[in-house]
Simulated assay, not measured.
Amino acid sequence: MKLVIAYIQPERLNAVKQALYRREIFKMSVTNALGCGEQKGYSETYRGAQIEVNLLKKVRLEVAVNEDFVEPTIEGIIEGARTGRIGDGKIFVIRLEECIRIRTGERGLKAIG
């Protein structure tokens, strides 16, 4: 079992979800996040004051999958999120020790679904 975590551009979320749906990956968690990397933010003037914005809006996508779905999940995220510009995002894959479905008490592979 693995947990795939991706940070992507907010406007690419719909494309990523569609790419995952085509690969029969439907269960995910999505959270708004702030972050910066090579983009380094930008400066703007607001009411005469110079403001430096160095934390940009991102979306954190988390998908817990069985081993057979790790590569399709990664491929789907890349397909939907890639624009070829700096700031497309990052994907992290973490080993999951345990998964428990609260409703039924199922554990492991059955709980992920």
Rank of each mutant, 00 (worst) to 15 (best):
M1P: 09
K2G: 04
L3V: 02
V4Q: 01
A6L: 08
Y7H: 09
I8Q: 07
E11F: 09
R12I: 05
N14D: 15
V16P: 09
Q18F: 05
Q18A: 12
A19H: 12
Y21N: 08
R22N: 15
R23K: 15
R23N: 09
I25K: 10
I25R: 13
F26M: 13
K27T: 14
M28G: 13
S29F: 13
V30F: 10
T31A: 13
N32R: 10
N32Q: 07
A33K: 01
A33S: 14
G35N: 05
C36A: 02
C36Y: 02
G37H: 06
G37W: 04
E38D: 07
E38P: 01
K40L: 04
G41F: 00
Y42K: 10
Y42F: 15
E44T: 15
E44P: 01
Y46S: 12
G48T: 05
G48E: 07
A49G: 03
Q50W: 10
I51P: 06
E52I: 11
V53N: 07
V53T: 12
N54A: 00
L55F: 05
L55E: 03
L55P: 00
L56G: 01
K57Y: 00
K57P: 03
K57T: 01
K57N: 02
K57I: 00
K58R: 15
K58P: 00
K58S: 04
R60Q: 12
R60P: 03
L61H: 07
V63M: 05
N66D: 11
N66K: 14
N66I: 08
N66W: 03
E67C: 01
E67Y: 06
D68S: 13
D68T: 09
V70D: 10
E71K: 10
P72D: 06
I74A: 03
E75N: 14
G76E: 09
G76Y: 11
G76R: 07
I77M: 07
I77F: 10
G80P: 11
A81M: 06
R82N: 03
G84C: 09
G84V: 01
G84W: 08
G84P: 05
D88S: 10
D88A: 06
G89D: 07
I91M: 02
V93A: 08
V93E: 00
V93Q: 03
I94Y: 01
R95Q: 02
L96E: 01
L96Q: 03
E97S: 06
E97I: 02
E98C: 02
E98P: 01
E98Q: 14
C99F: 06
C99Q: 07
I100E: 04
I100P: 01
R101C: 04
R101M: 04
E106C: 00
R107I: 08
R107A: 04
L109W: 13
L109Q: 11
L109A: 13
K110P: 03
K110F: 08
A111W: 04
A111Y: 07
A111F: 06
I112M: 11
